[in-house]
Amino acid sequence: MLALILAVALLSGLAISRSEGEATTLKDASMSLSLPAKQASHGIVGWLEGIYSYMFKYDKLVEENESLKVELAETRRALREAEAANAENERFRELLNLRSKFSSFVFESAFIIDRGNTNWSRIITINKGEESGIEVGDCVIDSCYNLVGQVVELGTGWADVRSIVDADIRVGVQVGEGGNAAMVEGDFALMQKDRVKLSRFTDETQVLEQDILLTSGKGGLFPSGLTVGVVESVHTEAGGQVEYAVVAPGCELGALTEVFVIKDFSIVE
């Protein structure tokens, strides 16, 4: 009997497991039925967390507000400098007759209504689906253009997003000042610490801690220039060659409530 249970469940599970694309009718129907409950519970949890934050995190928020004011002042100064550099850049472009860099995104905002709660994957569910023009493979970002993940399955009124720390994620990135190509790959062990692995470097790639990783845009799935994360630690082989690096994602997955699906994009480098 044990063998029978195992065999039937294994075969059925494997036949359908980790599939991507349009949801099965069964799943789509059950998701549609459970959506109101999920949205309601998400709203209640958010409201309770808001009260908790107000009651117990007030001092921390005041402190954070002060540091953000300092950061804002520094950012304004950097912006003034950047505006001057931008104007200069524009003049040089005109002199050299170059095309301007240009990027255009078509967004669809969505709320996270569920976070998959297993030890085996990091999938989040959002409250928009195929009726909003979202497609499998669309990339999902937060409000600061940090990559959150990629749509892997969808139905009416919902879409599953494979998050950036999931063991099955693969994203081409540019590393360091040279912009050398590498790959951010999900790793099962790192997934449990909400981290990903940077690997597949070219020989000339230099990876340093605190390097910011941006999407390379190669392959056409992800637009270039989105922040994937920051290199947290670099692991080298005995010969000094970089083996892999551990990357902390740019987005705060645990704190996210709203995300933006990039339905279409065009970029001129």
Partner: peptide, 17 residues
């Protein structure tokens, strides 16, 4: 299966068994 957020019907098959 819905709560797990995974693209499977693994438990829908396994639990009745």
């Amino acid at each position: 299966d819905i709560g797990m957020g995974e693209s499977t019907v693994l438990f829908t098959v396994f639990m009745p068994l």
